[in-house]
Design a protein around this nucleic acid. Sequence first.
DNA 1: AAGATAACTGAACATTTGTTCAGAAAAAAG
DNA 2: CTTTTTTCTGAACAAATGTTCAGTTATCTT
Lengths: 195, 195
Amino acid sequence: MARTQGSHSGITGPRIREAALQLFAQHGYAAVSMRQIAKEVGVQAGALYNYTPDKQSLLFRLMESHMRELLAAWGDLVVEGDAAVQLEAFVKFHIRFHMQRPDEVFIAYMELRNLNEENFAGIEVLRRSYEDALEQILKDGVASGCFRIPDTKIATLAVIAMLNGVMTWYRSGGRLSLEEVEGVYWEMVRNAVGA
Amino acid sequence: MARTQGSHSGITGPRIREAALQLFAQHGYAAVSMRQIAKEVGVQAGALYNYTPDKQSLLFRLMESHMRELLAAWGDLVVEGDAAVQLEAFVKFHIRFHMQRPDEVFIAYMELRNLNEENFAGIEVLRRSYEDALEQILKDGVASGCFRIPDTKIATLAVIAMLNGVMTWYRSGGRLSLEEVEGVYWEMVRNAVGA
DNA sequence: AAGATAACTGAACATTTGTTCAGAAAAAAG
DNA sequence: CTTTTTTCTGAACAAATGTTCAGTTATCTT
């Protein structure tokens, strides 16, 4: 037999990405085979190559689209107010956005070393762009006397690292609601930047 | 030919661990083959099995000894003073210790999912133990009115996540010295806990 | 209904994987 | 020097890897 009933490109493509996303996040890119992905989709391994030129591209596209969505979502969120208000918005946006996409986040931060040189450079540009958005807020806050920060570059990375920490332990349905988590982290960040 | 000149158990064992450490950190456990490790040591793949029962144990032992050294080093550091003094000591100890072992740290936080169930549980116990040490300081600080923290459990994880962030960007010989980095992070942590 | 196209199978490919083991050679012991 | 022990080689194993492709079938077009 060959083509199965109900097979369709418009549905198989997304399902492949979903399966790859989940499996990469759970076991790691290198530990997941194309056959495992295919099995999850309910298809033979060869069929995957109608949707991706190779395994590497599968990973890269997942990471790239995630980073682009992140930047686009933050870009859409126009915030009026001083640096403190903007920082609060950033903190809560970051936590909320990332908690809605645990698998994508995990991959974006763990599988960088499995990208080839060219793809790695592409993702780094996007990531840098996101970090710059936060650093600009911190710089504005320092300039306006709103924040007291010894080093905005370090503070940028420290804040993002701290916020990303939430992904390692938060399970929705846990002790705290998303709003409470946002609040707790915002308070810690606010203190950390001296606002 | 078989046994080569100058071959010795006392020297090959550590070299295998060093090679595995460096390669696992650079490319990831799943992406590194036993033959690559052997090549780095200058030996055939079969020889590795005189020193480890299998690849999994190689990873586990690296992680386990790192966690035990971490706990032992913190245990040896007796700190006299209130919660703020102890927290400062912890922050600076954590940064210094981890910066001296970038590869071990990377593996300990990235390769957990490549441990089998039993080994994973073993490492988790050790990690929890380290987190508890920090949380105890935070609890003491809250009890004595030294810190203002909404949730010591979250704060513990947030502080560790923030400190671990330094490993992702710091290169020795960079813009800041180790002492300066310690100082910057300590100030941010001090603010974050309201001290 | 007939033909064209798109989607998938199933087998095959060359490599690479972790691991085992008989045998060889160096080192240590006598 | 001779024997024993330790340490390693080199080949082999079955299984798994990413990828290709000729052929088969469902779906779409006319």
